[in-house]
């Protein structure tokens, strides 16, 4: 049978771990770690999500096909975010844009010293 009846104790252990991790992530937010605040918050979130997927959603006991679906979902999410980021944050690498880009739209955001005209900004 594909039915794996897990002991109640396991569910409670996962539950307590999730609550403790929530407390930790909330507490850490009040400590100044510089850029590592973001890193710690995301690492804890990924860890919590993994616990939920493995035990509450029984991934540990599913067929290999299910794992393929999850990997595919995460892969496409990585493609979506990765390619968007690599587009926007490399635009300022070239001083002048390609022929198909107007110079004003190359890098309105992170500008090098003398590059493209600034977008109007409100004070």
């Amino acid at each position: 049978m594909s039915e794996h009846v897990l002991p109640k104790r396991l569910y409670f252990v996962i539950f307590v771990s999730l609550v403790v991790l929530t407390a930790i992530t909330t507490g850490v937010a009040f400590i100044d770690l510089g850029p590592f605040n973001t890193v710690v918050a995301l690492v804890i979130a990924v860890f919590k999500a993994t616990l939920v997927v493995l035990f509450f959603m029984h991934l540990k006991y599913q067929t290999g096909m299910t794992r393929v679906v999850i990997v595919a979902a995460l892969l496409w999410l990585a493609v979506l975010i990765g390619i968007t980021m690599s587009d926007v944050f490399t635009r300022h690498w070239t001083e002048k844009g390609s022929s198909w880009q107007r110079s004003s739209i190359i890098s309105p955001y992170r500008q090098t010293a003398s590059a493209a005209p600034r977008l109007p900004r409100r004070a």
Binding site: T22, T25, T26, A29, F30, I31, D32, L33, N37, T38, A41, L42, I44, A45, K48, A49, V52, V53, F56
Partner: peptide
């Protein structure tokens, strides 16, 4: 639930609360 597990740090915590 998992979506919220990510929304909570992204919206409420990130950047630090100090």
């Amino acid at each position: 639930d998992i979506v919220w597990i990510f929304l909570f740090p992204l919206l409420y915590l990130i950047g630090g609360r100090y």
